[in-house]
């Protein structure tokens, strides 16, 4: 009984005369982990930006969790349940882990105090620990500021947000691009944990090994179009590279690119 969490139809984005994304039809089932691959400039990040409301699409429809959506900004998307781990980490360096997880949606008491309402540190700390536990993220001391953490720890904090806020869809844009081997392993472990918990995920990645390790399905973008939709078990690295470079195009997408 698979249910669709996200579906786009004819999603298109033009930047002036540049057709960055053209008629993208994309489906993601609940609990499914899908990788988006493609060369630089293939439209991967553009696609993500339309879904997360960072940019406004030129045309097309987005159906999220059963309803058609028009996010006016990333905050809208987040409120609907789409958590994004951006390439550039959206963390405040001088704040600690719970502060960052709850940034912009703090738990507060005495709400009649308006901008001076009191922070409920205890609840936020407990929720943070629960979220970190859920994702198996180990942070030595959550009261340390982000500035004192390694790149891997920072990425983990960014990812832990999704677990803390029971999101419906997580999008990661090259989460391990800037990380070392050990740290990459840590992030990949978290992704596996999310899979076990039935969290839906879109993973933008260049890393072939990682993609084959982590996801169920691979969608390949080329020159603004989706050119392949491959089950992981029916394909291999060479095959995917052929689609990425343009040596092959999926049968159902013939004539598209």
């Amino acid at each position: 009984m698979s249910e669709t969490i996200l579906e786009t139809k004819g999603l298109t984005k033009h930047y002036g005369g540049v057709h960055a994304l053209e008629d993208a039809d994309f489906i993601l089932e609940k609990g499914e982990h899908v990788a988006i691959m493609g060369d630089n400039g293939a439209g991967k990040s553009t696609f993500v930006r339309q879904i997360t409301g960072v940019e406004q699409r030129t045309r097309g429809t987005i159906v999220f969790d059963g309803t058609e959506v028009n996010f006016s900004g990333p905050l809208d998307a987040r409120e609907a349940g789409i958590e994004t781990v951006f390439q550039t980490l959206a963390l405040a360096d001088d704040l600690n882990v719970p502060d960052n997880l709850f940034l912009g949606r703090e738990k507060t008491m005495f709400n009649w105090l308006g901008p001076f309402r009191i922070l409920d540190y205890k609840t936020m700390r407990e929720a943070t620990l629960a979220g970190l536990e859920k994702t198996a993220v180990k942070i030595p001391n959550i009261r340390n500021t982000i500035a004192n953490m390694s790149g891997g720890q920072r990425q983990c904090v960014a990812i832990a947000r999704t677990a803390t806020f029971a999101s419906k869809l997580t999008i990661m844009d090259e989460p391990t691009a800037a990380l070392g081997v050990q740290e990459t392993a840590q992030v990949e472990n978290i992704v596996r944990t999310l899979k076990e918990q039935g969290e839906s995920l879109i993973l933008v990645s260049h890393n072939m090994r990682q993609v084959f390790d982590l996801v169920d399905r691979i969608v390949v973008f080329r020159r603004g179009r989706i050119v392949a939709n491959l089950n992981k078990d029916d394909t291999d690295g060479q095959d995917v590279v052929a689609y990425i470079t343009g040596a092959k195009t999926g049968a159902e997408y013939e004539g598209a690119a």
Binding site: D93, P115, R117
Partner: peptide, 26 residues
């Protein structure tokens, strides 16, 4: 106020990373 209210937290957040603060909905 700076340590226990949302005002203080957002003040530090904006100075720390304004883009992140904006993306977080502040």
């Amino acid at each position: 106020i700076m340590n226990y209210t949302i005002y203080g937290k957002h003040t530090y957040a904006i100075g720390s990373n304004e883009a992140a603060a904006r993306m977080s909905g502040i």
